[in-house]
Design a protein around this nucleic acid. Structure first.
Lengths: 261, 261
DNA sequence: GTAGATGTTCCAAATAATGGAACTTAGTTT
DNA sequence: AAACTAAGTTCCATTATTTGGAACATCTAC
């Protein structure tokens, strides 16, 4: 279990249920939730009512199904704007995209997983919230490994405990040791490679975003397909990538929120 | 006060605090929150701790400020995908954009406010404030009025109670009566106009998205600036707009979530 | 009509939230 | 450098809320 022990009382339980509904990625019946949830019937029922009342979930009376609520979209907009690296990094990502002409991802760590907070892609027009918010495992992605390799010991320890080490492809790290073994190389080179570890045919080069005090706050990757490019090709983008992550790191360090006055 | 009476115990209070932090749109200190919150010091403190623990908020130890948490971005991604009209409407919005070549917004109602869930824009120059997740008042926007005018009586009543009737411009409806008076026209014409009611120089034409059973579930608008177009110009887009909203309404009506099995 | 499953409500017991006040730390003034 | 002030944190007996087993209601299928 990648789940950590929760000690946050009623609120924690309610949010756990929110996560539960989210994992379905489709409207879901009460009984379906009941069968997976730890909570007894009446308790689960009450939580669903409360969350629906609050707009965190929505309930379709005709179909008798729960979905995620729009209040989340509103709240996330605020989160994305004021708490993610996206607004800060936007310019640098634009520049990087222009330089390399490949798909760019901006990621941060959330509960041991990689959370994509922004993206640039050379071809198709896309809407931010549609793609932002997607998650991926940390142990088998360039963005994930780039962050993990630069984490402080106890933060890393916590993150590693949350990895499930699902072996997506033949080259996926299948245990903790194998993953850790790569960190020295990543730290030495300053970049991490995804060698089709998450998806066959998809490779990437990723670099961490570091604050001036050394803390990792996120990472940027340049991703492509094996049919278009080799790892060697990606390596030629390294200078531009590092320049971008450096610039974002500097911006994140000096960034001050607007004075309260 | 546009605030409704909350009866959702601890969870409701916690979410209220989340909203409170969101309104700041910037990292915020404990004392700032305390000064506006209803909650006593210790209670507020504990809630902030819990929410931070849960990833719904994030806390910057150095600056001692709270921001919205990335868990919201993850959850909202799920909400946007499975509970908003956006995925369903995407194709139709693409077509509409191509036909009219102006900025398109897709909106839904959330807690009496208009919530933008998707957007298409033809020119980068004309940057409206609206992006996915962004909110706006209902009483002074095309999308808002288009939805309100087609709401069932008690839903409308609840929504009207939540309007603050802030007079943004000279043409903003400044009270309930003035707003309601326009509804007959909107219902008769099938579209609502924003006559610079929210922002000077910005006008729009909007149409409701109706399910086959008559329920309004959202609206679509075509927005432009007065320097580029007049209201008459916008009116020429009416057929295309109505065709798009009809198609989205049909899709929303027949849409079935993937079978649980 | 009946069986079975799903969804909703009740209420006394168990538990968690509450908040006034005391305490600690950080920042400022005399 | 002591005294003051404001901000943030912890404590704990009291209070209020959550809890969940079980009964009840509703729907579905045969």
């Amino acid at each position: 279990m990648a789940q950590t022990v929760k000690k946050d009382g009623t609120v924690g339980k309610a949010l756990e249920i929110l996560d539960l509904v989210a994992t379905f990625n489709r409207p879901v019946r009460f009984s379906e939730l009941l069968s997976i949830s730890e909570q007894p019937k009446a308790t689960l029922y009450r939580f669903l009512q409360t969350l629906t009342n609050q707009g965190m979930l929505s309930y379709d009376e005709d179909r008798q199904v729960y979905s995620m609520g729009l209040r989340l979209v509103r709240l996330a907009h605020s989160a994305w704007q004021s708490a993610s690296l996206a607004p800060l990094a936007s310019e640098m990502l634009d520049i990087l995209e222009e330089e390399v002409g490949e798909t760019i991802h901006l990621a941060q760590m959330e509960n041991g997983q990689v959370l994509f907070v922004d993206k640039r892609r050379s071809s198709v027009l896309f809407e931010t919230l549609a793609q932002a918010g997607r998650i991926a495992p940390a142990h088998c992605t360039g963005v994930g490994k780039a962050i993990l390799a630069f984490m402080a010991p106890e933060r890393l320890e916590r993150a590693l405990k949350q990895q499930a080490f699902v072996p997506y492809t033949a080259s996926t790290h299948k245990d903790r040791e194998s993953l850790i073994a790569e960190f020295d190389t990543i730290r030495a080179e300053g970049v991490a490679f995804d060698r089709e570890e998450h998806e066959r045919g998809i490779i990437s080069i990723a670099a961490p975003i570091l604050l001036n005090n050394g803390k990792v706050v996120g990472s940027v990757s340049i991703a492509t397909t094996t049919s278009r490019h080799s790892l060697k090709d990606l390596e030629t983008f390294k200078p531009q990538l590092l320049q971008a992550t450096k610039a974002i790191g500097d911006a994140a360090t000096t960034w001050q929120f607007p004075s309260p006055k």
